[in-house]
Design a protein around this nucleic acid. Structure first.
Length: 266
DNA sequence: AGGACGCCCTGTTCGC
DNA sequence: TGCGAACAGGGCGTCC
């Protein structure tokens, strides 16, 4: 679930609803998710302070506190972020709960415990330490082409590599390649400049449209492949049956008719 | 360097 | 129907 558009929705949720309320307690139900601190450490960091801003880089959400400290939330494969009004029960699999003095709270949920919480000195410091590439929405066509020029191997694998481009995972790489008409196993080096430009434009439009749809497949444009990504699904463009292959260790869904194996369809 | 793999964890879906 | 196997949208380490 949580790729760039999902995390952007969580960022906005935090920004719109959870700022400027005094943090009373922090309940960490799964301390193994704490990367660089302890229950006590996170509690000390947050207690008495307020979230004052929310930033995002790729799939990482950074919650800034009025003290200048930061809390990084990564959602793994099955995480989310919920804001709870006073009296609302924390959802199942809530692994970390920030309870505010006004009795509202912010819940970090991670069903499969594959997420991560850290306390970097700044988003920049975290991005540098983890060697993350630029955020996908911050990459212009030149930066995109420069990244491609350094990369060998399959295009899907490159799009999903957080060190090259931060924010794209299995689902959105499929969507971007579908919109661009490029086969997921096509080699990056085989893409013409024109095709690469199209992939870049599709990266932006797909991510922006997904954010507009609140990252909910049911709200996405009819032209999107995402809601069809399953066995028996039909291509929204040619109505043919979509197919899957293994690429970059994951299942890639694509339309064999609209995304031919031959690269550089201009 | 990049790809294939196993692993982390846990719930759902698939196939016999 | 019932069961275990395979799989799910992330990321890391290891080996080739």
């Amino acid at each position: 679930m949580p790729e760039l558009p999902d995390v952007e929705i969580y960022r906005r949720r935090l920004e719109d609803r959870a700022l400027h309320q005094r943090i009373d307690t922090v309940h960490v139900a799964a301390p193994e998710l704490l990367n660089d601190t302890s229950r006590q450490g996170l509690g000390r960091l947050a207690h008495g302070h307020r979230f004052s801003l929310a930033r995002r880089h790729g799939k990482c959400l950074f919650a800034g506190l009025d003290s200048g400290s930061w809390i990084m939330l990564h959602f793994g494969m099955s995480g989310s972020l919920a804001y709870l009004e006073r009296g609302e029960e924390p959802p199942r699999y809530c692994r970390c709960l920030f309870r505010f003095a006004n009795r509202a709270s912010l819940a970090y949920v991670a069903r499969r415990k594959l997420g991560r919480i850290a306390t970097p000195t700044s988003p920049r410091a975290y991005v540098d330490a983890e060697a993350l590439g630029p955020d996908a929405l911050d990459m212009d066509a030149d930066a995109f082409a420069a990244s491609a020029a350094k990369r060998r191997g399959q295009v899907k694998s490159w799009l999903m590599d957080q060190g090259s481009i931060a924010g794209i995972g299995n689902v959105y790489s499929d969507e971007i390649l579908f919109q661009a008409g490029v086969h997921p196993r096509c080699a990056v080096g085989e893409l013409s400049g024109k095709t690469l430009g199209r992939v870049h434009r599709c990266m932006h439009t797909v991510l922006e449209q997904a954010i507009d749809a609140a990252a909910d497949p049911e709200n996405m444009p009819d032209s999107f492949l995402i809601p069809k990504r399953k066995k028996g699904g039909r291509c929204p463009r040619c109505a043919g049956e979509i197919a899957s292959v293994k690429a970059a260790g994951r299942t890639a869904w694509f339309c064999p008719n609209c995304q031919p194996q031959t690269c550089s369809p201009d």
